[in-house]
Measured scan of single mutants.
Amino acid sequence: SDFTIRIGDRTLHLKNVSEEILKILEELLRRGIDFEELRKIVEELIK
């Protein structure tokens, strides 16, 4: 499924993301992860 994360004025667009990855990202966001850290993790996950 497609997913968009907005943190402040920044946006991260994800396409064809599995439910498992979404759950991980949601947990990281709940813990207050930094946007740049989140972006790096996402890039690793979707390689």
Rank of each mutant, 00 (worst) to 15 (best):
D2Y: 02
I41P: 01
S1D: 07
D34N: 12
I33T: 11
L25K: 00
E37F: 07
L28H: 13
I41H: 08
E43H: 13
L25M: 04
R31Q: 09
G8I: 01
I7P: 00
L12K: 00
E26T: 15
E20L: 08
D34P: 11
S18M: 02
E44I: 09
I21C: 03
I7N: 02
E43F: 15
I33G: 07
F3Q: 02
L12Y: 14
G8C: 02
K40M: 13
I21V: 14
K40I: 13
D9Y: 01
E44L: 10
I24E: 10
R30E: 08
L14F: 09
E27D: 11
R31W: 06
R39Y: 14
G32M: 05
I5L: 03
K47I: 12
L22G: 09
V17L: 05
I46E: 11
E43V: 09
L28Q: 07
L28A: 07
R10L: 06
E19Y: 14
K23Q: 11
S1K: 13
E44M: 11
L22T: 12
E43T: 09
I33W: 10
F3C: 06
D34T: 14
K47T: 14
K47R: 08
V42C: 03
R6I: 15
E27G: 09
V17Y: 01
K15T: 08
R10C: 06
E44C: 12
E36F: 14
G8A: 02
E44G: 10
I41M: 09
L12Q: 00
L29G: 03
V42I: 08
I24R: 11
R39G: 07
V42W: 04
F35G: 04
L14R: 00
F35W: 07
K23M: 14
L38E: 01
L28C: 05
E19W: 14
V17F: 03
E37Y: 09
L12E: 00
I24S: 10
L45A: 06
I24D: 07
L14M: 04
K23C: 06
L22H: 10
R31L: 07
E19S: 11
E44W: 14
R31C: 04
L29C: 06
L22C: 04
I41Q: 10
L25G: 02
L45I: 09
I46S: 10
L29Q: 04
I21E: 15
L22M: 13
L29P: 02
E26Q: 15
R10I: 07
L29T: 06
K23E: 08
E43P: 06
V17T: 03
I41F: 09
T11N: 03
K15I: 04
R6V: 11
L25T: 06
L28D: 03
E19A: 14
R31S: 05
F3N: 01
T11M: 06
T11R: 03
S1F: 15
D9W: 02
E43Q: 08
E37M: 11
D9Q: 08
R31G: 06
I21P: 02
R6L: 08
E43R: 08
I41D: 03
L29H: 03
L45W: 09
L14Y: 04
I21L: 11
T11H: 09
F35S: 04
S18R: 05
E26I: 14
L45N: 05
R6Q: 12
T4H: 09
E37N: 09
T11E: 07
I21Q: 15
L22S: 09
K15M: 04
G8N: 04
E19K: 10
R39V: 14
D2F: 01
K40L: 15
E26G: 09
V17R: 01
I5F: 04
D34V: 10
I46A: 11
I5C: 02
K47W: 14
D2L: 00
R39Q: 13
E20K: 10
V17S: 02
G32V: 06
E20M: 06
L25W: 02
I21S: 11
G8M: 02
K47H: 12
L14K: 00
I33E: 05
D34I: 07
H13G: 01
E27L: 15
V17C: 03
E36P: 04
I7L: 07
E37P: 07
L25N: 00
E26D: 08
L38Y: 04
F3S: 01
K15P: 03
T4I: 15
D34A: 12
N16G: 10
R10K: 11
F35V: 04
I41L: 10
H13Y: 15
F3P: 01
K40Q: 11
S1Y: 15
I46G: 12
S1A: 08
E19V: 13
D9H: 09
R31E: 05
F35L: 05
R39D: 05
R39M: 13
L45K: 06
G8F: 04
E20A: 10
R6M: 11
L12T: 00
L12D: 00
L29S: 05
I24T: 12
E19G: 13
L12M: 10
I41V: 12
I33C: 05
R6G: 02
I5G: 00
L25Q: 00
K15D: 02
N16H: 07
I41W: 07
H13E: 06
D9R: 04
D2M: 00
E20R: 07
E20W: 15
L25F: 04
I21Y: 07
K47Q: 09
T4N: 05
L22D: 02
K15F: 07
E26N: 12
N16M: 06
E44Y: 14
E27F: 15
E37R: 09
K15W: 06
S18H: 04
R6H: 15
G8E: 03
S1L: 14
I24L: 10
L38S: 01
R31M: 08
S1Q: 14
E43L: 13
L45P: 03
S18Y: 01
N16Q: 04
L25Y: 01
L28G: 02
E26K: 15
R10T: 05
L22I: 15
K40D: 11
D34R: 08
D9I: 03
R30P: 02
T11L: 06
L28W: 12
V17K: 01
K47G: 13
G32N: 13
I33S: 08
I24A: 10
L29I: 13
K47V: 12
E44Q: 14
E43I: 08
K40G: 10
E27K: 08
G32F: 05
I41T: 12
D2R: 01
D2W: 03
L45G: 04
I41Y: 08
E44V: 11
K47S: 12
S1V: 13
F3H: 04
T11G: 01
L28M: 11
E36D: 14
E37W: 05
E26P: 08
G32K: 09
D2S: 03
T4L: 08
S1R: 14
R30W: 11
L14V: 04
R30Y: 11
R39A: 12
F35D: 03
